[in-house]
Amino acid sequence: MTAALDHVLRHNAWATKTLLTHCAALGAEALELHAGGTYGTLYGTLQHIVGAEQWYISLLTDDVLGPRIRKTERRTLDELVAVAAMTGRRAIEVAANDDAERVITPGGEQTTVGVVLAQLVHHANEHRAHATTILGANGRPTPKIGAWTYGLASGISNIDGD
């Protein structure tokens, strides 16, 4: 695996954890906020990010990491943080050890490991944007979760957006 892909996946895990931690500090009422054109409530969006990533990892490894995240069952943000930590680590392991062109057949359909990992990265970026849009639209503070801040937090750069 290239160093760049390693950072893409580490940024993904860091950004989800940072967003979840930020939202946990806002209190329960904030979790019910929503904004037009996004996925749903802030909580629903956070759960969807983590639940989808859990599912992508199960497609790639046949393992469901942690308690199954279902749309119909509400989990605490601490539980979502714990599951996201496991799926984030496993995504890095998959990228390091698997073959991007290996074919997998979820539900009788056909796709490849590389496409699933691209979806994992895209999906979380997209829905984290929904979450920050909800926060901004409701006058709440938004976390800095771009790669610049990730690099700063990881101690490998001195830039926090420019």
Partner: peptide, 15 residues
């Protein structure tokens, strides 16, 4: 600011 190229590629995808 000084940043590794890998972080710029990461930001490229995220952005």
């Amino acid at each position: 600011a000084i940043v590794p190229g890998t972080i710029i590629v990461t930001q490229y995808i995220h952005h």
